[in-house]
Design a protein around this nucleic acid. Sequence first.
DNA 1: CGACTCATGTCAGCATCCTGACATAGCGTC
DNA 2: GACGCTATGTCAGGATGCTGACATGAGTCG
Lengths: 147, 147
Amino acid sequence: MSRGIDLPTSMGYLLKEAASALRAAMEEVLRPLGMTITHYSCLELLAQRPGSSNSELARGAFVTRQSMNVLVHGLERDGYVSRPAEAAVGKVLPARLTPRGRQSLAAATAAVRSVELRMLSGLTPAERSTAFAALQSMTRALRAGPG
Amino acid sequence: MSRGIDLPTSMGYLLKEAASALRAAMEEVLRPLGMTITHYSCLELLAQRPGSSNSELARGAFVTRQSMNVLVHGLERDGYVSRPAEAAVGKVLPARLTPRGRQSLAAATAAVRSVELRMLSGLTPAERSTAFAALQSMTRALRAGPG
DNA sequence: CGACTCATGTCAGCATCCTGACATAGCGTC
DNA sequence: GACGCTATGTCAGGATGCTGACATGAGTCG
């Protein structure tokens, strides 16, 4: 089919490839639970930072406020999260997990953890920490801007 | 604003974070050239594998055949790539870069290369190859499936 | 206090990409 | 040659996410 020419051996392409594979694997294990990756990300963020605002969740899940807004509304409608009807102070509506949301998250977390373990199965602890530091360095350098 | 609680320190989150930062940085440098990431990816793939089919390009750019199809039609309309009107054999329409496409790609490649260099600026050659191998291992393990 | 800046929530419109489905061509097997 | 399997190109429909814009509230500085 293809002439077997070398695919791009750039770190950028490899990073995209790994992220794509991770995304596919996570979708695969979350689908049986009736959740999407964004669903899970939102719940996981709320578990770690209860009372987060919509905008904070959006930044944590790498989406816009608007997208996260419709998602949170859906989660609220389905009883996974709860928000006060009106802002106690300012315009921020702090969201929290409901018991149902916490229960749903527990199953999802287990599934995602298994994916992450599989992803790291071929690496020694030393290699893992090196890769971890390298990814942190890359993210920092990219965020620094062109200057 | 936030209580400064530790953000997820999982490799998966970090991978997504790095890929997101890379995407943002690439969009930033490609926008002045009037190109999107998918545009660039398609042209780069065609430069490395001339005569690729639409489906091959889709796999290489991590999108569906349908999405790549509309993209290639646009690139063909704008004179960046050329495809035969009818398939010489089978249904495959092999695409090739036009001189204009090659010229446009050259500028984009330079811009993307600068982003990649910035991304790797904080890493030693040894760290780079270790990270490269780690990403390859992670991708392989994820693609292997749950079994 | 008044003006300015910033962050947030929200609305409307649009672009992008995907899922599902279909017909067709090549390939291998019998 | 007939059949099944795979891959490709294409069409229609819908879900998802983003850009642009607006009003409001909080904090800051003169």
